[in-house]
């Protein structure tokens, strides 16, 4: 692999292994789109089937949802800035921006947990109605992805702090950034098709 090492361009693309790993991650993300699409399809089909549980329009609060959306949106932006710094070779700036990203991600998770607990108190749980099963599965799977992303990014940050930017660590840094932006892409669709439409219909 080192025989093919390029001398210019972003560090993560300089080795064949780096290029192929990143390409492979795009394939993984395509599979993730399909995974989430099945959850969205289930949600769409079960929409309105709330049985005796409260309707989504009664429980969704636009303030909470907008705060969560902005937290994730800003974290996606700071993650982009982190990669921008990575490509300038600024280790400290990369770590700082990634830590901000992860703190925003934690804030998002905090709001989501608060939201789920609040819904459960109002009688909307995984067991209470088909609609709420689909809702918690969809939003919960996204939340699980955010949780995993925070753990994963933390480990990569430790590696970067120890080893600096090498073709290997910058490849990992780039891949976690793709993952993090992708979480925001999924959230945009949850925000629109679950929360906004849930409040309109």
């Amino acid at each position: 692999m080192s025989a093919h090492e390029l001398k210019s361009g972003p560090l993560e693309y300089r080795t064949q292994e780096g290029q192929m790993s990143i390409l492979g991650f795009w394939i993984f993300l395509a599979a993730e789109i399909v995974l989430f699409s099945t959850l969205f399809a289930t949600y769409a089909v079960l929409f309105g089937r709330t049985a005796d549980a409260p309707a989504p329009g009664e429980l969704f609060e636009i303030e909470t949802v907008l705060i969560m959306t902005f937290l994730l949106l800003i974290s996606s932006f700071t993650c982009g800035i982190a990669v921008h710094n990575m490509r300038k070779g600024a280790v400290k700036a990369f770590i700082t921006w990634m830590v901000i990203t992860l703190l925003l991600g934690l804030g998002f998770l905090g709001f989501e947990i608060y939201e789920f607990v609040h819904y459960a108190h109002e009688g909307a749980t995984l067991q209470s109605a088909a609609y709420w099963s689909a809702f918690f599965t969809l939003a919960g799977t996204h939340g699980l992805h955010v949780t995993l992303g925070i753990g994963w990014a933390t480990m990569i940050l430790i590696q970067v702090a120890k080893r600096g930017f090498t073709p290997m660590t910058s490849r990992k840094g780039f891949i976690i950034s793709l993952y993090w932006h992708f979480l925001d892409v999924v959230w945009i669709f949850i925000f629109t098709s679950v929360y906004l439409i849930g409040m309109v219909v």
Binding site: L23, W26, A30, I33, V34, S37
Partner: peptide, 22 residues
């Protein structure tokens, strides 16, 4: 990236599949 059009293709086909499934 050296990946050519593959990332774009992956995302495009992922979204097409998602649209068909939903």
């Amino acid at each position: 990236s050296g990946g050519g059009h593959v990332p774009w293709n992956m995302m495009f086909h992922g979204f097409v599949l998602a649209a068909i499934i939903v």
